[in-house]
Simulated scan of single mutants.
Amino acid sequence: MTAVLFDMFGVLARHQSPAACDRLENTAGVSGDAFWESYWNLRQPYDRGDQNGTQYWRKVADALGTPFDEERIAELIAADVASWSRVDEEMVEYVGRLADRGTTIGLLSNIPAELAAHYEQHQEWLKRFSVLAFSCRIGHAKPESGAYTWCSTAFGLPPERILFVDDRDANVRAAEALGMRGHVFTSLRELRPVLE
């Protein structure tokens, strides 16, 4: 192993909290499964950068049969960005220590443009990564093979010299299918022995 490629959400940053989910539902005026099925089923093109936030939320509105005006869409984008903005300080600190020790680190995240811009503005630790692969910028979203091959090329390393760390089994298996080593993240306690 020469480089470690980290997922963001569920590893370095936290998933949406119940309060953040409630805010999104309340902003949309739609709650429960109907909202979240539309939210997730339509997400991949938004994460990949094929759509901007306005286009994505218009697609969600169409799926829900509920019109969102421009003001509502702006509020939804803001609520969505806020819902994904909590970081895991312990993991961020640990990754920083890895970089200080000379470990080559990268980040591969399914993230839309508005959220990527927010992280770049507010999270200085992103500068520690030698490879920063935001799906909205590289045109590939996990578990698409292009996301992993893009990172391998950016590292200048063959896949077998990269360890990919993600909390989603499907994403790890897709990386392994291309030759990367994989670790399904559950906690720092479980990850540390793999890296040390």
Rank of each mutant, 00 (worst) to 15 (best):
M1W: 01
T2I: 09
L5K: 02
F6I: 02
M8N: 06
F9E: 08
F9N: 10
A13K: 06
R14N: 14
H15L: 12
Q16T: 14
S17M: 09
A19P: 07
C21D: 11
E25Q: 15
E25L: 07
T27D: 00
V30A: 07
V30F: 08
V30M: 04
A34S: 15
W36F: 11
S38F: 05
N41R: 14
Q44S: 14
Q44W: 07
R48A: 14
Q55R: 03
Y56V: 02
Y56G: 06
V60T: 06
V60A: 08
A61I: 03
D62A: 10
A63N: 12
G65M: 01
D69G: 06
E71L: 07
R72L: 05
I73G: 06
A74I: 03
A74W: 05
E75V: 02
A82H: 03
E89K: 10
E90F: 03
V92G: 00
Y94N: 01
Y94E: 02
R101N: 08
T104M: 05
P112A: 14
P112S: 11
H118Q: 09
Y119I: 09
E124A: 12
S130K: 08
V131H: 00
V131C: 04
A133Q: 02
F134P: 01
F134E: 01
R137Y: 03
G139W: 00
S145N: 11
Y148N: 12
T149R: 15
T153P: 10
G156M: 04
L157D: 05
P159I: 13
P159V: 13
L163I: 08
F164L: 08
V165T: 07
V165S: 08
D166R: 11
D167K: 14
D167I: 15
D169E: 14
A174I: 14
R181M: 10
G182D: 09
F185R: 03
S187K: 13
S187E: 12
R189W: 00
R192D: 04
R192C: 02
L195W: 08
